[in-house]
Simulated scan of single mutants.
Amino acid sequence: MPGMRLDKLLTHLNCGSRKEVGAMIRAGRVAVDGTVICDPAYKVDPDRAAVALDGQAQQYRAQRYFMLNKPAGVITANRDGRHSTVLELFPEQQRRGLFAVGRLDKDTEGLLIVTDDGALSHALMSPGRHVSKVYEAEVEGALAKDAAARFAAGLTLKDGTVCLPAKLEVLAETPVQAVRVVLKEGKYHQVKRMIAAVGGTVVRLRRVQIGGLPLDTALKPGEFRMLTEPELVLLRQQSPAQQKN
């Protein structure tokens, strides 16, 4: 992506608004390849130029990719007048252009990808792609003895919703019944509704994996970090277009 204006690049790097970074450049606070540049329109190759603001190197990345351990109590939305949102877990200057890939219910915890890459979001969330999502749940009530077989066959819920075949595994029965559910779709409240269909009630739900990407267990609820390049490869492998290359 050669030939990007310097002020536009710094805006992409969340150094400030276009007006603010223009003032920084004109004030002589920005250097390109070791030379102070005072022209906001100066053209740079963002993939090769060494750009520094106040002596601090600024690394360009066309898109941003974050892994967030979503806590319970926040909603998956960009803005909401009544509830805290997942984007509010990010510093304000970092939020511009970001959105969550898919949704987790307000009381559901765990792995959420936050990015500004719409193509990757579509590849992961499009119903036709059948990207697997792994959940761990704490369940009250006695599950039917054939619950796993019914999940594997594909459940039809009371309202007529047809669910694709899924995997149900009991991890522990005491002191709390713990199960793992693997889905290849993401219908409304799907895990809770499927568990209810086989006799249980979900009291806690956590997503622990999307495709081949597991949640980093070092991330506490509410914490996030950038995805590594190998992790991005794992996510991109979920797209048939990527797999053909």
Rank of each mutant, 00 (worst) to 15 (best):
K192L: 04
G16E: 11
V233L: 07
G81Q: 15
L157G: 07
A166R: 08
L13E: 12
Q177P: 06
A49Q: 04
V179W: 13
F90D: 07
L112Q: 15
L157V: 07
G141A: 04
G222K: 05
Y188R: 10
I37G: 03
P165K: 05
G73R: 09
I25Y: 02
Q63D: 01
P240R: 03
E92W: 04
V233A: 05
D33H: 08
V203L: 08
Q238D: 12
A100Y: 14
K19A: 14
M226G: 01
R207K: 01
G55E: 00
R150I: 12
G97V: 10
L6V: 00
G73L: 09
K19N: 14
S84Y: 06
A62D: 07
A197K: 10
R236T: 00
N14T: 11
T174Q: 15
N14A: 14
T161C: 05
C163L: 06
H130N: 06
V203C: 14
R103G: 08
Y188V: 06
V86S: 09
L89G: 04
R82I: 11
N245W: 07
F151M: 12
L219A: 10
A142G: 06
K43W: 02
N14Y: 14
Y65N: 08
M4D: 01
A31K: 10
E185L: 03
K106V: 11
D47E: 15
A149E: 07
M67K: 03
D39P: 00
Q238G: 05
H130K: 03
I210V: 08
Y135G: 05
R193I: 09
K19L: 12
H122R: 14
V203K: 15
I25A: 02
